[in-house]
Design a protein around this nucleic acid. Sequence first.
DNA 1: TTTCTTTCTTGACAAACGTCAATGAAAGTC
DNA 2: GACTTTCATTGACGTTTGTCAAGAAAGAAA
Lengths: 205, 205
Amino acid sequence: MGKNPKRNRETLESTQEMSKCILKNKQFNSEEAEEIIQAIRIENHPKGSILLKEGEVAKDCYLLMKGCVRQYFLVDGVEKTTFFFVEEQGFSSFKSAAKGIPSDHFLECIEDCTLAVLSVQKELELYQKYPNFESLSRSGLEDQLGDYQEMLAKFITSKPEDRYLDLLENRPELINRIPQYQLASYLGVSPETLSRIRKRIFLKK
Amino acid sequence: MGKNPKRNRETLESTQEMSKCILKNKQFNSEEAEEIIQAIRIENHPKGSILLKEGEVAKDCYLLMKGCVRQYFLVDGVEKTTFFFVEEQGFSSFKSAAKGIPSDHFLECIEDCTLAVLSVQKELELYQKYPNFESLSRSGLEDQLGDYQEMLAKFITSKPEDRYLDLLENRPELINRIPQYQLASYLGVSPETLSRIRKRIFLKK
DNA sequence: TTTCTTTCTTGACAAACGTCAATGAAAGTC
DNA sequence: GACTTTCATTGACGTTTGTCAAGAAAGAAA
């Protein structure tokens, strides 16, 4: 599954879309953009396929064009979901990719996914060649780091119910797309508790 | 407090130490290193001083040479601690600094601190001038992002008691340096609960 | 459709947590 | 030294959560 990504009409459209995304960026001239586009491959992975297993070394970084990817840990045989990536989000298993160490988590497509994939090796080459590309990456990393600082802070400072309300407000699309037991795990509670939290909220209105 | 940092023997030593840290990095020639060192100023802030207030726009990024800095939010009049920075750690309020928006949190020196400070503006200039410097920054950001991914995952997947045990194992120095009520907040529980958790752990041994 | 599987809900009970209040201990101040 | 302030501990009680188990609802497959 997912080992042999299809090359179809959707793939071509995604390539064009991704290309536009890079070309519109004024930091790049057409030559640079061309080489970057060449380095990126589009992959389609069906729902349920695993992009990265625990123990494997991450070799790629991703830009999600369509679908949803779940990051989870296996703790005492139980899956603990820690993140959902959706459209337009770029991501990688940084610890594993940057240091070449085995990943401690899994990445799973929980919907049919279309991904723009760039190998870490190629990425480094592009950094060397085009400082503008590294600049774009640094800036993106700063944004993401800001997001993570914020998420961690929210998680520390709020209760499960508040976190669910926060999700309702800031990422409502997740609630309809994602199985409730995975959302529960993401909120740090059991599926039963999330069910009760939903009931409590419903009764309050 | 902290508005008028002292220039003393300690400051000079810190400058030398920081300079060595940059010079030893083989990515830089002496000219580059010199300019970077010139751009960085050393500041001493006494215990209790605030580096950044909620509502202010972050203009600097920091490298902590000595002491400990606490990040906290003010939620309904209660301080919620979300991070402790210690020696050798570089940090910034990324969201605020990168986007020029007001900070949603505070940064407080909870010990007498010696900091290497670089303004965001100067930082961007150095990136423009020396791609190697931006490269160093990108790499550092990736490391930090990996750390944050890991921390968030740990927080989601573990209970308060596990988090305390984790702290005992991985950052034991924090436990003796930091008031317990701030640690409790950092672990996401009330001071009373942390006190009881410690008792439980003690009884188990 | 029917059947099977997966997911969600509900109940019951024990464990853990938050809050309020009181007490103790430690550190700093006069 | 005595005093004040701050921080840590302990008890009591109500709320929330986890777990186990059973049943309902929703999807997928035959």
